[in-house]
């Protein structure tokens, strides 16, 4: 069964339309949501949590329609982290534990404190004295301590240093050792997504560009560095993106539409997304 199933999701705002988005996150997988600022990533996540209501289409989360009554029970099984962690400033992690104990039915105190230990967070320091990285770690500890099956994270790794980000990615990697656990995360930092995702969803100006298995994506395309003359010889239908400089051309091609006659450069997911976004 899919952890999240979205069909023809549509939402209109003034000046922005999320346009018939469809994708599914299979259980046990990690899916990354990429796209420029204003592409519709946060809107999609908000629609999944039914924090804003949709204009059309359907969303099923953990098997239930998110506008149905049963969704309230399903929320117990979802952990959420937004790009800013908000807790009252005077609270310490110990206080947070005491509050969450009465908020979530499945709250696991031992799990929470072992995460606090793992992240080396001080138990008795108040939230206002936390650094950005510490705040984010606390939010992630809270999201994981109530035994969720699905984690949803909106830009949770942005603004953090590479060490902290790596630590957090490791945690998501471990979380999905259980085949019932799934993660949906959005990020600008494409290299983070490349490290851990099974699937990549690419949104561009409110439209779904693709939802693909990450490794297949990188196999399907090739990046070539060519002279202008060489470039002229490539069949136009194979070209997905072009970057020119005074001395030559970098071109992204679909491998199955052209014979592979030129040596392929190392293609990162980030390059791929940039080429495709400009070509679109």
């Amino acid at each position: 069964m899919d952890a999240i199933e979205i069909k023809d999701l549509t939402k209109h705002f003034k000046g922005f339309t999320l346009d018939h988005i469809s994708f599914a996150l299979p259980r046990g997988c990690i899916m990354g949501l990429v796209g420029e600022n204003g592409a519709g990533k946060s809107t999609t996540l908000n629609l999944i949590m039914n924090a804003i209501s949709r204009d059309g289409g359907s969303i099923k989360v953990l098997g239930v329609d998110n506008e149905s009554r049963e969704f309230n029970a399903a929320k117990e099984k979802i952990g959420i982290v937004l790009d800013e962690a908000y807790f009252p400033e005077v609270l310490t992690p110990k206080n947070v534990n005491n509050i969450m104990k009465y908020t979530y039915q499945n709250w696991q105190e031992s799990e929470f404190f072992s995460l606090i230990d793992r992240f080396r967070l001080p138990q008795n320091k108040s939230f206002r004295d936390f650094s950005r990285g510490m705040k984010m770690k606390l939010a992630i500890a809270v999201a994981l301590a109530h035994q969720p099956e699905l984690l949803i994270l909106d830009e949770a790794t942005s603004g953090l240093d590479p060490m902290v980000r790596d630590e957090i990615l490791d945690l998501f990697n471990d979380f999905t050792r259980d085949e019932n656990h799934s993660v949906l995360l959005s990020s600008h930092i494409v290299s983070d997504l490349e490290k851990i995702c099974d699937y990549i969803v690419f949104l561009h100006q409110g439209k779904l560009m693709f939802c693909e298995e990450k490794d297949r994506l990188l196999e399907e395309y090739a990046l070539w560095k060519l002279t202008k003359e060489q470039f002229e010889d490539i069949p136009k239908e194979a070209i997905r993106g072009v970057k020119r400089n005074p001395f030559g051309v970098e071109v992204l091609v679909k491998k199955d539409a052209v014979a592979d006659v030129f040596p392929a450069e190392h293609l990162s997911l980030e390059d791929l997304i940039l080429f495709l976004a400009k070509g679109a």
Partner: peptide, 14 residues
């Protein structure tokens, strides 16, 4: 499959 993927930090599907 799952533990190999997670240990190598690569995709489960791959």
């Amino acid at each position: 499959i799952r533990s190999l993927a997670k240990d190598l930090r690569i995709s489960v599907i791959t």
